[in-house]
Design a protein around this nucleic acid. Sequence first.
DNA 1: ACTACGAGGTTGACACTGTCTACATCTTGG
DNA 2: CCAAGATGTAGACAGTGTCAACCTCGTAGT
Lengths: 207, 207
Amino acid sequence: MAGTTSRELLVATARTYLDEHGLEGLTLREIARRAGVSHGAPLRHFDSLAALCSVVATEAFEGLYGAVADAMAAAGDEPRTRLQAAGHAYVRFAVANSGPYSLMFRPDRCDPSDADLQAAGQAAFAQLLFAVSEAQGAGWHPADHTADLAAVVWSGVHGVAGLAILGVLDRTVAVNGGDADLTHLLDLTQRLLDLPQPSPTPFGGEP
Amino acid sequence: MAGTTSRELLVATARTYLDEHGLEGLTLREIARRAGVSHGAPLRHFDSLAALCSVVATEAFEGLYGAVADAMAAAGDEPRTRLQAAGHAYVRFAVANSGPYSLMFRPDRCDPSDADLQAAGQAAFAQLLFAVSEAQGAGWHPADHTADLAAVVWSGVHGVAGLAILGVLDRTVAVNGGDADLTHLLDLTQRLLDLPQPSPTPFGGEP
DNA sequence: ACTACGAGGTTGACACTGTCTACATCTTGG
DNA sequence: CCAAGATGTAGACAGTGTCAACCTCGTAGT
């Protein structure tokens, strides 16, 4: 890649490692090794491993935001359909980027006080808040308690994503007669939440 | 405590540490230090730190199972009320035992192939499965796809618990006008899922 | 043109970790 | 009484994050 500072190279190396191996073994020295520099070099650009991870997590939040925004834009004008599309995009992003997504919710690996990270997280929640309030405006549930309603929706998609990434849906649900298919589970969730059924969009592949 | 083998003492020490400090810094050597033994002693009882953590996680699954069972028993006979109580008990347990609860879903800290741990997890899911099927029998949603419905319910409570433990509900939701009160959020979830509203049971305190 | 400086990289230390091995001790069954 | 197993100890090893000392440039200022 052109114009890549070595700082950006380190972040990219970490992200690549996450994509290939997940959180486990993501180590300052391993990143340095893969970037072809000495073990101390990354500390010239980041205060700590957690600071580097925070940058990766921040970029992941931004990627999530973009993926959700794209999905909502593609879903058209009907607010409930847009909210439904946002939920699908959220889970799709989380599963397709499980390494960075996990990092986003691991304050022991990131620095939770990182200002950029906090801002990116707030922006993502604000996006959800807007989608929910839009849907409320179109008659989806009572119009008050928007933040709480958003929290419930967030919990739902976050829970599905987390269990899916853990592999526990395949391992536990499918064994008991469920199909554990993510699209199917999300559709079921959204039927329960009184959201419209989606047009048939196949799963997988990252935006 | 009487009749406590040193193996049990190590597990109890780990659990106490988790209650006090959470996952961070939970280390074989720290457990040994607190138990007053040399750093190598725990390995006489457990193959690895992950094996010790698996025992703690297994016991946590059993505690969760018991808490949910108690709550369902106390909720009476109406299946939907029982399912509602199960959801509350789940989140209450997770928040009151956030250290062990986190461990339950951290395959990097436990040994996911541990047979006891797997069995305890399966038992907990079977319990939920039963509660959902009971509620379906009482007319709650269509009677098919029980496992998928259970997965959705699980995702919901797991998501709420996870975000609450992270503190992100206080930090992100409350700032945007939500009250982020767990009981309130759960009630909202359950209203959305068409479950009965609970009798007013105050939050907090572990069973 | 020369110099001072700062950004970035290297190397070697330090304390800490999990795990292994060799050794000591204590208990218990034959 | 003694042999064997269970349990605990001490030391080592490789790995980690982080720090400090050193080096090496390119560049800005004079």
